[in-house]
């Protein structure tokens, strides 16, 4: 197996461990869009753990920046695409109740029909979008 495949598998298993810890100990689903959406409502009752999760995420990000800065790249999309992409991801994950982590990892592991449909749909439209942008224009 190539190094990329092994890194993907190890990184994926770490993501699985992170999701599992949050579920076993806190009883929460590790869906990033859901955690963000909840945190942005600033409800006193469940803001705390979301904030802690995000602080952990940013700490991990700083560690990556310090030791493996190569894991970050500069998006090749133009400024307008970056804004449109951000809005589509924000609105889409809010309307669709989840993203790659919540639907794709946690939902599929629970064999949730909603998450399975959502994951197949966003993967398909990701394929189509890149296909159109790279091969039609």
């Amino acid at each position: 197996m190539s190094a990329d495949l092994i890194n993907a598998l190890i990184g994926g298993m770490m993501i699985g461990v992170a999701a599992s810890a949050l579920l076993i100990f806190n009883g929460r689903i590790m869906g990033i869009s859901g955690i963000l959406n909840g945190a942005l409502k600033f409800n006193k009752s469940d803001f705390g753990w979301r904030f802690s999760f995000l602080m952990g995420l940013f700490s991990g990000a700083i560690i990556l920046k310090a030791f493996y800065p190569g894991v970050f790249d500069v998006p090749q999309a133009g400024w307008i695409e970056v804004v449109i992409g951000g809005v589509l991801v924000g609105v889409g994950t809010t309307i669709g109740s989840g993203c790659t982590s919540g639907h794709g990892v946690c939902g599929i592991s629970r064999m949730s029909p909603r998450s399975l449909i959502a994951t197949v749909t966003f993967m398909l439209f990701g394929f189509l979008t890149v296909g159109v942008f790279r091969h039609l224009f």
Partner: peptide
Amino acid sequence: PLVFGAILFGIGWGVVGYCPGPALTSLAG
């Protein structure tokens, strides 16, 4: 909403290459 939202999200993901978790993490870049 589930399907429509997933369609919008898929398009946005394909336009830039970021989904929510990696976008937040990449702020450190």
